[in-house]
Design a protein around this nucleic acid. Structure first.
Length: 210
DNA sequence: TCGATGATTGAG
DNA sequence: TCAATCATCGAA
């Protein structure tokens, strides 16, 4: 299936975060017996993180050992470890002018490999499989060893694909970002949504606190 | 070196 | 509501 190309990621980070909603995220994992495992889900929640104008971003203070992928070529995987327990998956994306940025992928709707993902997550609840950055990383077996991979290459072990039927939900809702203390005024979280009568609902696969 | 902190989660 | 748990970063 066709992947969004490099130019897709070479735009403002918030535009890329918005446009990733409804795309397919695909994980191809090489098992020890050399067989290939294919897992995938539809992106239903993202967040944009910028550079100078964004104190909540890892890139805010300039390049470091950890965040260097945010300053490099766009369309590359940036994984970091947080709270001593969880990996978070990002894709580098920014316009040439803004110099650095990344999109945090926060939630997916399960598509392929559901039973395998349930095993990795040690749960049978589909709503808890991919609904949060730490959860989707565990379900997709993502750690820092895939940092730097190219998501525009369909042969890559982690990549993004267009969905044949177009967007899952017609609407994208923007809100303030989750889990940060600074820049709460920016509405750089994007969620897949749909209309039901006069109500505007979020996808049930979005991350949320109980 | 060393201490503070965090783009989270599951349990209580 | 709270603690687990450790890589990263900037100060000392």
């Amino acid at each position: 299936m066709l992947c969004p190309d490099r130019s897709f990621y070479a735009r403002s980070t918030n535009i890329v975060a918005n446009d990733l909603i409804g795309k397919r995220l695909v994980r191809i994992k090489r098992l020890s017996d050399n067989k290939l495992l294919r897992l995938s889900g539809t992106i239903v929640e993202t967040e944009a993180y910028g550079f100078r104008s964004d104190p909540a971003s890892h890139a805010f203070k300039g390049p470091t050992l950890r965040n260097q992928i945010m300053f490099g070529d766009v369309g590359k995987v940036y994984v970091y470890f947080i709270y001593g327990n969880h990996y978070c998956l990002n894709i580098s994306a920014h316009s040439k002018k803004s110099e650095a940025g990344a999109v945090l992928v926060r939630a997916l709707e399960p598509v392929e490999g559901v039973e395998i993902m349930k095993f990795f997550r040690r749960t049978s609840d589909e709503l808890l499989l991919l609904s949060g950055p730490g959860r989707l990383s565990q379900a997709f077996s993502i750690s820092k060893d895939i940092s730097g991979m190219d998501v525009t290459d369909a042969r890559s072990e982690l990549h993004v694909e267009y969905v044949e039927n177009g967007a899952l939900h017609p609407t994208t809702i923007s809100t303030s970002r989750i889990g940060i203390s600074r820049s709460l005024n920016k509405r750089w979280r994007f969620v897949s949504g749909y209309s039901e009568g006069s109500e505007l609902n979020m996808s049930k696969y979005v991350s949320r606190r109980h």
